[in-house]
Design a protein around this nucleic acid. Structure first.
Lengths: 310, 310
DNA sequence: TAAAAATACTCCATAGGTATTTTAT
DNA sequence: ATAAAATACCTATGGAGTATTTTTA
């Protein structure tokens, strides 16, 4: 078996024609036919049914083709990594990011970072924690931006910053007039939450955990898909919500008046770059980390009380 | 690039010697040296440091070698699948099974099934749900025996049987004398549970869900790692526990007197074979399913109330 | 100086080409 | 009748061998 043979069978399966596949691979039809036959003979499996036009893939052939595609994808990655090791960044790069971070963090670093690697096709996807972890493990994505620590032995975390959490409240809401609030002081008010699966939801719940004991769960209602939604809900229907620092910094000036801080040390979540321990594009990772740190408007400041990630 | 080159660099990395690697691959040292050089030249990456004895792998080489190993593993799988398609079952087969099923189900089918495929190296591992799902997705295991349905789009489920749940109680425990019990009737007694992560734990909790409302959570104590432990706890310290049908059938005759049934329709959990949708060894799967069905002492009988899987 | 890897060259196996026949619509 | 795949045969690239030199310890 050799790699060409695998390319050939995939082309034949795609074009359903030996002649067209031959053109695609820049060889002649008889050469391609014999190569495919040799592979079928070696494996003892008929990959194609030639008894009808156009040729079709047999049931067994489908299995072989799946393996072949997987092998060639790995080969492609090997070439990409080799180029990357030489400093030429090429191929594809898949980044996962949690939805409560994406709209505020991505615009800061993504354009300038992407322009550094014009040869690299960058894919960014908003994903929730439960999607990110399996995607990392199956190489569905290369890297993730999310709340940590995860306690996943297969994954490596590269902490970037600690993002404080703030209360965003409707002006109609009657909160104590002092600057700093305790979690207890917000517990009696309607709390708007992100939908299930968003780590910010659990971080907010954890922050007000005492409520479970008091049994006032019934005032946790509605589930938002984005922080924008949370803010709009508060603006329109009163109540309050918990938003992270980057979202808070993104508010309009009038909206910023609705922000209230927690007591010292402020609660915060740790945001990290996460990848498989065996992730080979380490230079890329360092480059991305540097880029984010450079553009980030949050400096490592005073001590914070870390919660989460959930 | 070709597959031989990948074999060669792996041998060199293993033996830390071009000469020894050449012997291992049944070619001459100069041939192997030139092949490795050609690969390094094509990739533009120095894989080995020859300036010291013995030769060592460079930092970049490690990345390439990891990809190479992964590619060759895939190639190995392609050959195995090809042989399997011809009916010759070879290679490795990894089966995951939940711990509350393993001790009762495995002895029924495993020896007879394994003896059918003397060429196949079979690995069985007890795993909890949270380990099984990522392992299936990353091809860490081929197949899993577990409670279903999972609502995982990437996975296919092949239901085998519905396993009823029973109450196992200490004779000292004062339960109503009638044959069939309702969940409510067991709620006032001490309930022994499996440790967190075992789906049987959640199935038992779900079965007695009303308890959460009444707030008698405090009588859920201790966490067992196996059903054997649960039974021993009940035998020695009173209280009761929920055990599945196969475990119940495995009890000694005096212990069977401690079994109590739930009211009709009896609660049950669905047990299935689970694999990736793209799993190619479908014949193997069917063979295993047939083997289990043949040896299983549970027949598809009257209607049951399915719970779980969690 | 002895062991190991690199270089120079030679050979032949096989991937691929050309001409033609066979098969399917 | 015609398009497509298979067969037969030929060519030439490159994988592997032999002899020798260079390098490392």
């Amino acid at each position: 078996m050799n790699l060409q043979q695998l390319f050939y069978i995939i082309s034949v399966a795609e074009t359903r024609s030996f002649a067209k596949a031959a053109v695609k691979n820049a060889i002649t039809q008889p050469s391609l036919s014999t190569m495919v036959q040799k592979l079928e003979e070696e494996l003892g499996v008929k990959i194609f049914d030639r008894s009808h036009q156009p040729v079709s893939v047999t049931r067994e052939g489908e299995v072989i083709l799946n393996r072949a595609r997987s092998i060639l994808a790995e080969v492609e990655r090997l070439y990409e990594f080799a180029q990357e090791l030489k400093g030429e960044v090429v191929g594809e790069f898949h980044l996962g990011i949690i939805p409560t971070l994406a709209p505020y963090l991505l615009p800061l670093f993504l354009p300038s970072w992407a322009s550094k690697f014009p040869q690299l096709r960058i894919f960014v996807r908003e994903m929730m924690v439960d999607e990110i972890i399996p995607a990392l493990k199956t190489n569905g994505i290369d890297l993730a931006l999310m709340a940590t620590p995860l306690q996943e032995t297969q994954l490596s975390e590269y902490p970037l910053f600690h993002e404080s959490l703030f209360v965003y409240t409707s002006p109609k809401e009657k909160l104590p007039r002092k600057k700093y609030l305790t979690p207890a002081e917000i517990g009696m008010h309607r709390l708007w939450l992100m939908a299930k699966g968003h780590c910010l939801r659990n971080q907010a719940i954890s922050l007000c955990e005492w409520k479970q004991e008091v049994g006032t769960w019934e005032n946790l209602q509605f589930e938002a898909g984005s922080i924008e939604t949370l803010i709009n809900l508060v603006d329109r229907y009163e109540g309050l919500t918990i938003i992270p620092q980057l979202a808070a910094m993104n508010l309009s000036t009038p909206q910023k008046r609705n922000l209230r801080e927690f007591v010292d040390p402020p609660p915060a979540r740790e945001i990290s770059l996460v990848c498989l321990q065996s992730f080979p594009r380490k230079k890329m990772l360092e480059n991305l980390r540097d880029e984010i740190m450079l553009k980030l408007p949050i400096r490592a400041g005073k001590k914070k009380r870390l919660i989460g990630p959930f």
